[in-house]
């Protein structure tokens, strides 16, 4: 992985939610996923701005779904990890888990 591809915290959340949501990863779903899992209010603008930045770094790509099967239904803009994004995410999470290895930090949730 190239040096300097550092992922910010919120970027990690966005990428992880893409993994969780798979084909259903579009703006509103991503926003809700992060909000529900972190119990923090997340704005849709934050999600789109972050996705945009990740797309600039070629970590994510977008694709348009078929129009929804209702009157006036529109295509949705879906997002998924690029191979490079996948690798970067693994690397970051791997580092974190290696740092956590053998530590007893206690737990504040779950």
């Amino acid at each position: 992985m190239p040096k300097g591809q550092h992922l910010a915290e919120f970027e990690q959340y966005v990428l992880l939610s893409l993994v969780r949501l798979g084909d259903e990863a579009y703006g509103a779903a991503i926003r809700r996923e992060i909000e529900e899992r972190t119990s923090r209010p997340v704005s849709i603008g934050a999600v789109y701005a972050t996705l945009g930045r990740l797309a600039d770094k070629e970590l994510v790509e977008s694709w348009m779904s078929d129009p929804l099967p209702v009157r006036g239904g529109r295509s949705r803009k879906h997002f998924r990890l690029t191979p490079h994004g996948d690798e970067t995410l693994r690397h970051t999470v791997g580092m974190l888990s290696r740092m956590l290895d053998g530590l007893e930090l206690g737990s504040d949730a779950e």
Binding site: P41, S43, I44, G45, A46, Y48, A49, T50
Partner: peptide
């Protein structure tokens, strides 16, 4: 709230 909180990001 969504719009107001999104604005700085956008």
């Amino acid at each position: 709230q969504q719009v107001l909180r999104s604005s700085p990001w956008l």
